[in-house]
Design a protein around this nucleic acid. Structure first.
Length: 422
RNA sequence: GGCCCAUUCGUCUAUCGGUUAGGACGUAAGAUUUUCAUUCUUGAAAGAGGAGUUCGAUUCUCCUAUGGGCUACCA
């Protein structure tokens, strides 16, 4: 285990544009993998057919291309563990679900969503677990014949994990240390749904991480509560000796007020929460992206890297190579970071100064065209060199330099006088 | 409600029992600049509260408070 090759994955769900918090999680995974000469894998977790959004997967791939984060294996590049889309791996999960069923570590439940809702209304804090499963319609309370006939009659069912109560489950987290949870507070989570013949997140995640030989699971803190369930699944499946190490990253919080940064915050507060602009295929709503807002990918990466991690030195400007060299999980912080985009602007300003005039000129050309200006790159680069230190964003170059390209329509009388006298 | 995680300037953070608690963003003042911006200098700005442990706690333990997360046939 200690000498095992580092293999990490980013496993988004294609339910919409990639959230900036997800970008940071992916970045940390990437940095960790490259630091240790390991592999970085892109796996698409599309086990919820209800929430699937067209175009989301392409968006995710394009986002990482723009950011300069590359994958060694994944849906778009293939690899030895293909396929990397969970919906295409249906057949592999069923086998392990059956294994748990056969071992008596999971059971079949027929309770409909309506029946469960009713229970939840009747009983405060209802939880499907050791204390309640005896009152439900499942393979533990029904006879084998009844179960068989219910299935043959076409009744939909789910497979639930059978949690043994009263046991302490230990999760060793690389960032938080040892987290102990008593199994009595865990519920018998659904692992598999007969309706779409797909596992739920928990099952698919554990099976794939095992099959793809993932060595470290680096993910957001929102997964910490389900980590004990995951440890139990590795144990039930007999894979505990090769279980990946866990690291739960602190969350990105709203810059003001309460709560974690959400998709809605961006446009409300005037900064993007997505790497690229996104048009919702259903509503047609457009959410702004960092790329379209004029951020340089290097600035976004640098800014994000420092939100939850620090090098322990006073260096703040990092190239991707420098980040890879300095990154470590030990220096990740434990508490959530408010997303302060003011600092993001500063990073962007720094990177604009750092880039050559020619590079900035390339980015400026489309804006010039929008304003009806045709100019050679050499001339644009010359102008950029004159005014770039004044701007935070490439688009601001226009207001700073338009007079180089278009004669002013008006002028300030006072300034004219001053100039003539001076 | 239950469970889990966290808590240093407004924000991101450094500090691995003994420091004038450091840096950066933002902010204030000044210098430079015809103006603005840049740049430079300087300043203001923090250990949630309470008990312990210790010669000594920001640092270790506990309690409280606050913030966050989870609590779905979503991930």
């Amino acid at each position: 285990m200690e000498n095992q090759k580092v293999r990490v994955r980013f496993a988004p769900s294609p339910t919409g544009p990639l959230h900036i918090g997800g970008v940071r999680t992916a970045l940390y995974n990437y940095l960790f993998a490259k630091k240790h000469g390991g592999d970085f894998i892109l796996r698409i977790e599309d086990t919820d057919s209800q929430r699937f959004v067209q175009g989301a997967e392409e968006y995710i791939i394009e986002s990482f291309n723009w950011l300069g984060i590359s994958f060694d294996e994944g849906v778009h590049v293939g690899g030895k563990c293909a396929p990397y889309r969970q919906s295409e791996r249906k057949s592999v999960y069923k086998k392990y679900v059956d294994q748990l069923l056969d071992a008596g570590l999971a059971y079949i439940a027929f309770d409909t969503p309506e029946e469960l809702d009713k229970k939840r209304n009747e009983i405060a804090n209802f939880q499907y677990d050791a204390s309640t499963r005896g009152q439900m319609r499942n393979s533990l309370t029904l006879s084998a014949e009844e179960v068989k006939s219910l299935i043959e009659a076409g009744n939909q069912y789910v497979v639930r994990i059978k949690i043994e109560p009263g046991k302490d489950v230990v999760v060793n987290d690389l960032i938080r240390g040892e987290v102990v949870i008593n199994s009595s507070i865990l519920d018998d989570k659904v692992l598999y749904k007969s309706a779409d013949q797909l596992p739920t997140y928990h099952m698919a995640n554990i099976v794939d991480d095992h099959l793809m030989e993932i060595s470290h699971v680096i993910r957001g803190e929102e997964w910490l509560p389900s980590a004990p369930l995951h440890v139990l699944l590795y144990r039930y499946l007999g894979w505990e000796d090769t279980m990946p190490k866990f690291a739960h990253l602190p969350l990105l919080l709203k810059p003001e007020g309460n709560g974690k940064l959400s998709k809605r915050d961006g446009d409300r507060l005037g900064f993007p929460v997505f790497p690229l602009e996104w048009e919702d295929p259903k509503s047609g709503d457009i959410s702004s992206g960092y790329r379209e807002s004029g951020y340089l990918p290097e600035a976004v990466v640098n800014f994000l890297a420092l939100l939850g991690w620090n090098p322990g030195t006073e260096q703040e400007l990092f190239s991707m190579e420098e980040l890879i060299a300095s990154f470590s999980l030990e220096r990740c912080s434990k508490s959530g970071a408010k997303f302060d985009f003011e600092k993001g602007k500063w990073f962007n300003h720094k990177y604009i100064q750092q880039k050559s005039n020619n590079e900035i000129a390339d980015l400026f050309q489309p804006i010039l065209k929008e304003n009806g200006v045709e100019a050679t790159n050499a001339k644009v680069a010359q102008v950029v060199g004159l005014v770039k230190e004044r701007v935070n964003f490439v688009k601001e170059l226009w207001s700073q330099s338009s007079f180089f390209f278009v004669a002013p329509q008006s002028y300030d009388e006072k300034n004219r006088k001053k100039t003539l006298e001076g």
